[in-house]
Simulated assay, not measured.
Amino acid sequence: MTGFDVSGSGAGRAGFAVIPVLDLRGGCVVRARRGERASYAPIETPLAKGSAPAAVAAGLLRAWPARLLYVADLDAIIDGSAPDIASLRTIAAACPGIGLWVDAGFAAAAAVEAFLAEGLGRPVIGSESQDDAALVTALGDGAVLSLDTRGGERLGPASLHDDPTLWPPDVIAMTLAQVGAGAGPDLPALAAVRARAGARRVYAAGGVRGPGDLRALAEGGLAGALVASALHDGTLRREHAAGLA
Rank of each mutant, 00 (worst) to 15 (best):
residue 15 G to E: 01
residue 92 A to N: 03
residue 121 G to E: 01
residue 61 L to R: 14
residue 184 G to N: 01
residue 169 P to N: 04
residue 64 W to F: 09
residue 146 S to D: 05
residue 132 D to C: 03
residue 6 V to T: 15
residue 198 G to M: 06
residue 202 V to R: 09
residue 27 G to T: 01
residue 12 G to W: 02
residue 228 A to W: 03
residue 47 L to C: 08
residue 227 V to P: 00
residue 10 G to E: 09
residue 201 R to T: 12
residue 27 G to D: 00
residue 121 G to Q: 12
residue 69 L to V: 11
residue 111 A to S: 14
residue 183 A to H: 02
residue 18 V to H: 06
residue 140 G to L: 08
residue 214 L to P: 03
residue 68 L to Q: 15
residue 197 A to F: 05
residue 26 G to D: 03
residue 66 A to T: 04
residue 116 L to W: 04
residue 113 E to S: 15
residue 98 I to E: 05
residue 175 T to R: 14
residue 117 A to V: 01
residue 43 I to K: 03
residue 179 V to L: 09
residue 2 T to L: 12
residue 160 L to M: 09
residue 167 W to Q: 04
residue 34 R to H: 14
residue 165 T to F: 05
residue 168 P to D: 11
residue 74 L to Y: 03
residue 148 D to V: 09
residue 107 A to W: 00
residue 45 T to D: 13
residue 199 A to P: 15
residue 213 D to A: 00
residue 16 F to Y: 05
residue 163 D to S: 10
residue 237 R to K: 12
residue 224 G to Q: 00
residue 197 A to R: 07
residue 242 A to M: 02
residue 226 L to I: 07
residue 4 F to R: 03
residue 147 L to D: 04
residue 38 A to D: 15
residue 64 W to P: 05
residue 5 D to K: 11
residue 226 L to G: 09
residue 43 I to F: 11
residue 19 I to V: 15
residue 241 A to N: 06
residue 83 P to D: 06
residue 118 E to M: 06
